[in-house]
Design a protein around this nucleic acid. Sequence first.
DNA 1: CTCTCGATTGCGGATTCCGTCGCTTTGAGC
DNA 2: GCTCAAAGCGACGGAATCCGCAATCGAGAG
Lengths: 173, 173
Amino acid sequence: MGCANDESSCTVKNVARDSKKPNGSASIDAVSLAIIEQLQEDGRRPYAAIGKAVGLSEAAVRQRVQKLLDQGAMQIVAVTDPLTVGLRRQAMVGINVEGDLEPVADALAELNEVEYVVITAGSFDLIVEIVCEDDEHLLEMINKRIRTLPGVRSTESFVYLKLRKQTYTWGTR
Amino acid sequence: MGCANDESSCTVKNVARDSKKPNGSASIDAVSLAIIEQLQEDGRRPYAAIGKAVGLSEAAVRQRVQKLLDQGAMQIVAVTDPLTVGLRRQAMVGINVEGDLEPVADALAELNEVEYVVITAGSFDLIVEIVCEDDEHLLEMINKRIRTLPGVRSTESFVYLKLRKQTYTWGTR
DNA sequence: CTCTCGATTGCGGATTCCGTCGCTTTGAGC
DNA sequence: GCTCAAAGCGACGGAATCCGCAATCGAGAG
């Protein structure tokens, strides 16, 4: 039983037991983190290969992945390179609002071109990221769609010159 | 989506032919876009199911997916919810630099906690997003890691209060 | 018209996925 | 200490999927 083939599996298991997180919401131990790490490298990697890497059976990996997906801790998706898809103008926009922030944030989240909406503490109330095809499109978005929203007091745009780093590997350094 | 299954394939194909992009890098027609859309919903969806949805055989879908992956237009990865993984403090940081931007951007990109590095036109030279475990960790990053980098003149932080929207569906509205 | 080249299809075998069963461990309650 | 329930894991077999390969189709050049 124990470790039939690899002693590495035992190691991993023991590490897993020790990593009790009396944390906030869900319990993600070291093994699940290792599984996530595998899927961050390749979202389509077979369960058996993941199992071999983290020291678990194929069924156990499958069960844990399903649970992670169900509880919303992780999702497996395709992400594209904006430039390759023909989206050449991106910008971060800081927004100041008068009154309640939430309805403005909701309205911004409705826009397809808006990729990212976050309420912040700082000299901007809201920060959004928008992805456009070209300058004209970008201008249209900022001028016609964002600045005309009721409650928007002012905006400041930061047009992307070069995207230097973008990762999706939170939590697994 | 809208149409049945059989003639939909023809439609998609025709649309595909018309969408010639004399663009910069690669050519992504409507069919590949539809495939990407499928994989944005579920990165592990079987090729046969995707083929049925976009009007292509399983082998053709597989080939196109492989090509999209090879040319770097798309990647299939697991993304996690930062809060669930125990990362509770995020911030956007605007940075002003004296001298060459690139080495500073490179140094920032080296940091594990830095998720996003972009060179912008606007009142900030650089904008980065950082993901931390708690306030102490965040303070350490900004104060010890970022502000001490040679060339960094000043920083302004925007701590996240609420992440309202975050999508990965570029290019496929 | 013919030829070439890239994309697509169909097919068979290896692999993987998925439901299920039984075992072990853990923790709560008496 | 004992029992019981629940959860996690390994094993197994059938169905579905993945993968490579050869043949086919269609568009464009000569």
